[in-house]
Structures are given as structure tokens and as C-alpha cells.
């Protein structure tokens, strides 16, 4: 059977290349060619806000979604974003994700409601600051106009002293070029792929600023249930094998982006421990986490406080690994 895989990003990125070169071939291999996959990259079939619904409705059978694009449909998934620092190694991040999926039933429930079954989890590279002005630490963003990927990251920027702005992503490159905004904070690989570093060459990074929200790769529920026990097991096995390989891809991608930036002559500074403490300031964070609970309840996640409590516990465990 030939299935369609839909991804809104183009090939050439860390995740898309991984899906194209590792995961999809592994699925064909594990299922002995019973499942063949025809990928549609670059949003040519479904856009970033359409994949969840599109796979749920069987337009494509396999897909990838960033939960941040579905604020009310993947409320529980937004809990990860409430932890600005996280495990440095992908292995420990993915441990946390699987633990969370096992112990917080709301995560799988909202996927099931959307008609999809999760197969594999990947992640973006850690969050990074790309600024126009020279900066050697978090002080450098004070009072300046910064764009971030997502509502909670905008709030972190605000807490750290920047003026959060929501210039549309399509305008960010030119906005950085002309000085409409001073910088942008998002995942390291994504921003490098979008060439923001060409026009904001002062970069602050730390592997501790994980990009929290998982990238979920899933299959249509009815299609999944129509498969034999054996094929399902093979699908999961292919996904598990791939996930294990992603750790190395994650590290290599980080080093590659960094070395490409160094070769281009951009300034790269590591965030100090003090800066990281400021970024994830516990007092401010508690306020934001409480705000998340209130908003998540309003969006229909009745036991948001329990979800948050459980996540705090799991996050602490993951950090100790």
C-alpha cells in the first residue's frame, strides 16, 4: 500500500531530511515493502495549520505537526513550552516525551480526538537568539523589539526585558534587514534555514534552551486500525529505530549550523549560567505556568493543573538523568 506523508517544510532541513532519508525508508524496510510512502514536502499538499486535520481526514495518511500551530486542539501539548530549559541530550528529551505520553493521558487523547495515532517524536534544535546588535549576553535584548516563535516565548522575552513584537514570519527577514525589529528567538535550525542569521548576525546559543514542544509524527487512526497487528508492530519498530538515530542527527545538526555560521563570520556567544537562570527565572516562571493552567482550562483542558503538576515532576526527573 502506498501512503502519503505530508510535511509543511521543504527538504534540506534537519527534520525533513531525517524523515526522508531515515524514517520513511525504515518504514518500508521494516514492513518488508508492504507500506510504501510517497512524501509531499514544502506544504505542497497541506500547510502547517492543515496537517493535523488533513491526516485526520485521510487526505494524507502520515504527517507531521508542530503542536504550537494548533493552540486549542493540542492544548496539553503546549505544557512542554512552559519549561524554558530542558535536557541537553535528545535521548533525555525523548525519554521525557514518552514518559509524558505514558503518564499524561490527555496528550494521546487530543491526538485521538483529531483522528491520528502518534508514531514518532522528533524535536527542533534549542532556542537561540539572533540579534542585529552585538550582544554578549541576555542584557543585549533589553528594551529592543524581538520576535519569538509562539505565545509563551513572547512572554519569556518580555520577562527578560525585551519588547515582544509579532511581525508575521513572512516579513521577518526584511524586518530584520531594515531594522523594523532587532532580533528573533526561535529554534536554532529553523532560523538558520530561514536565513535570519544573514541579517541578524549576533547569535546567542545554549543547548540548555531546548525547543520544548515536541514535533509529532503521526498516522491516520482508521488507517492504523485497518493494519494487521504485525504491520502495526513493524511501524512502531521502524519509528523506534529512527527515533534512536535522531539523537546523533540532532547533535550533528547543531554543530553544523554553528560551524556554518562561524564560517560566515557571524558572532556566536554561549549564554552564561546567569543568563540561563534569568531566562528561566523560577518566580516569573511560576506566574507564567499558573497563567498556562488558567488558559488551558479555559481552552477545555479540565485538569490542566494536574497536567502541569505531572509535567513538573517528569521534567525534574528528566533534568536529573
Amino acid at each position: 500500500e502506498t501512503m502519503k506523508y505530508s510535511d509543511h517544510d521543504a527538504t534540506g532541513g534537519m527534520r525533513t531530511d531525517f524523515v526522508n532519508d531515515v524514517w520513511l525508508p525504515e518504514i518500508e524496510k521494516q514492513t518488508g515493502g508492504e507500506i510504501k510512502v510517497r512524501p509531499f514536502f514544502g506544504g505542497v499538499l497541506l500547510g502547517s495549520k492543515e496537517v493535523l486535520g488533513g491526516v485526520g481526514d485521510n487526505v494524507a495518511q502520515l504527517g507531521f505537526a508542530f503542536p504550537g500551530h494548533y493552540p486549542n486542539q493540542m492544548v496539553a501539548h503546549s505544557v512542554f513550552a512552559m519549561f524554558p530549559t530542558g535536557p541537553v541530550k535528545f535521548e533525555n528529551q525523548v525519554w521525557l516525551y514518552h514518559q509524558a505520553y505514558a503518564e499524561i493521558p490527555e496528550l494521546k487523547a487530543e491526538l485521538e480526538k483529531a483522528g491520528v495515532v502518534p508514531l514518532m517524536i522528533t524535536a527542533g534544535l534549542p532556542g537561540a537568539f539572533f540579534g542585529k546588535k552585538p550582544m554578549d549576553g541576555l542584557d543585549g535584548i533589553q528594551g529592543d523589539k524581538w520576535r519569538a516563535g509562539g505565545k509563551w516565548l513572547l512572554r519569556y522575552l518580555e520577562s527578560a526585558g525585551a519588547q515582544p513584537v509579532s511581525v508575521p514570519w513572512g516579513d521577518v527577514y526584511v524586518a530584520l534587514q531594515t531594522g523594523t525589529i532587532d532580533g528573533v528567538f526561535a529554534n536554532y535550525d529553523g532560523m538558520h534555514l530561514m536565513k535570519f542569521d544573514e541579517v541578524a548576525q549576533n547569535i546567542l546559543i545554549s543547548k540548555k534552551l531546548w525547543y520544548a514542544t515536541p514535533f509529532v509524527h503521526f498516522i491516520n487512526k482508521d488507517v492504523y486500525e485497518g493494519l494487521s497487528e504485525e504491520t502495526r508492530a513493524q511501524l512502531h519498530e521502524a519509528s523506534r529505530i529512527s527515533e534512536e538515530k535522531f539523537g546523533a542527527v540532532y547533535d550533528a545538526a547543531f554543530d553544523q549550523v554553528r560551524s556554518e555560521q562561524e564560517a560566515s563570520g557571524y558572532t556566536i556567544n554561549e549564554l552564561s549560567d546567569d543568563d540561563i537562570a534569568t531566562w528561566s527565572d523560577t518566580d516569573k516562571l511560576t506566574v507564567l505556568q499558573d497563567a498556562w493552567v488558567a488558559e488551558a482550562k479555559e481552552a477545555g483542558l479540565a485538569n490542566a493543573d494536574e497536567v502541569m503538576a505531572k509535567m513538573r515532576e517528569l521534567h525534574a526527573q528528566a533534568m536529573l538523568r
Binding site: V167, P168, G170, D171, V174, A175, T178, G179, T180
Partner: peptide
């Protein structure tokens, strides 16, 4: 546009 007062949109 070119002074950065506003974005292309």
C-alpha cells in the same frame, strides 16, 4: 519601508 518604520505588508 527601507528605514524599518514598517514591514512590506
Amino acid at each position: 519601508l527601507y528605514s524599518g518604520a514598517f514591514t512590506p505588508t
